[in-house]
């Protein structure tokens, strides 16, 4: 590389071009939605994940396709890290999020939600040959609204969990659950991504993982029986009222469009078909 006047200028021009082409003007105007960007994690199987060729696949990408057709809005799905996803929505980086985000009062202070499209309970997974052999209450679902039953179930679970480490994804409803009910009994270790919790469960760095039961079952199935879902599963209360599309509070028209499209996919059985395809059980919420 001989440094001449022209190559010196080219460098500068290249940098300027990089700046200009990188920032396209916003595609959707405030009121008339033609194209929107929807953030997902691409790391929360089977809700959303990456295929080897880099495509986003799973329940939510397929559901979004259906919704997109019904809303007559072009939806572009983009992968984002979970920590900061809600901040990115309010900041306007994208217009919606679909990442198995549960509706909770705390989140409702910051963002709006569509009607829910999936409602899965939360539970724990352990390793078959790990430090915890089994947890009580497998197969029983506890509603957090029932305080007496919750207290009894938590006390029963606390015995085998005492002194153990539980991995959980940061800023999730499961993290809130552990903090509220088991903080004094166990060590909670938070991860920025879900799959990392399962890697550390397998290697024995944590003794149990708490996550959405659907997510647990998918990982357990992949592990050839080494990892099992065990113990009570919990729903309701601070665990939210099901997963929904997260939207900005300032976009009520968009929420209306999503609600209408979700109603339509629920009514004609599309939602159920997709749930059975990806989750193998029907977890569509009663609308």
């Amino acid at each position: 590389m001989k440094i001449t006047r022209s190559s010196f200028l080219t460098l500068g021009l290249g940098a300027a071009a990089g700046l200009v082409f990188g920032t396209a003007p916003r595609s959707a105007s405030a009121k008339e939605w033609k194209v929107i960007r929807v953030a997902t994690e691409g790391a929360f199987p089977p809700y959303n994940m990456h295929a080897p060729d880099g495509r986003l696949i799973g329940f939510e990408p397929e559901l979004l396709q259906e919704l997109s057709a019904r809303m007559n809005i072009k939806c572009e799905m983009i992968a984002q890290a979970w920590d900061g996803m809600i901040a990115g929505l309010t900041d306007g980086k994208y217009d919606a999020i679909m990442d198995a985000v549960s509706i909770t009062p705390k989140r409702q202070e910051v963002i709006a939600f569509s009607t829910p499209y999936a409602a899965a309970p939360s539970g724990l997974a352990i390793m078959k040959d790990g430090a915890i052999k089994s947890l009580p209450g497998t197969g029983t679902r506890i509603q957090l609204a029932d305080e007496a039953a919750t207290k009894a179930a938590v006390e029963e679970m606390a015995k085998p969990l005492a002194g153990k480490t539980i991995g959980v994804q940061v800023a999730t409803i499961q993290n809130d659950f552990l903090t509220k009910y088991l903080k004094d009994v166990v060590t909670i270790r938070t991860y920025s991504s879900g799959p990392d919790t399962f890697l550390d469960l397998k290697s024995g760095r944590v003794d149990a993982v708490m996550a959405s039961a659907i997510n647990l079952n998918a990982s357990a199935k992949k592990s050839n029986g080494e990892m099992i879902a065990s113990g009570f599963v919990f729903a309701g209360g601070l665990l939210g009222q099901g997963s929904a599309v997260g939207l900005r509070k300032g976009d009520p028209e968009l929420k209306e469009l999503f609600d209408k499209a979700l109603k339509s996919v629920a009514e004609d059985g599309t939602l159920k078909r997709l749930a059975l395809k990806w989750f193998e059980i029907d977890i569509t919420p009663a609308l």
């Binding site: 920590d83 901040a87 940061v170 800023a171």
Partner: peptide, 8 residues
Amino acid sequence: RAEVSQSY
């Protein structure tokens, strides 16, 4: 990072 995901 944890604080951001709590407070947005």
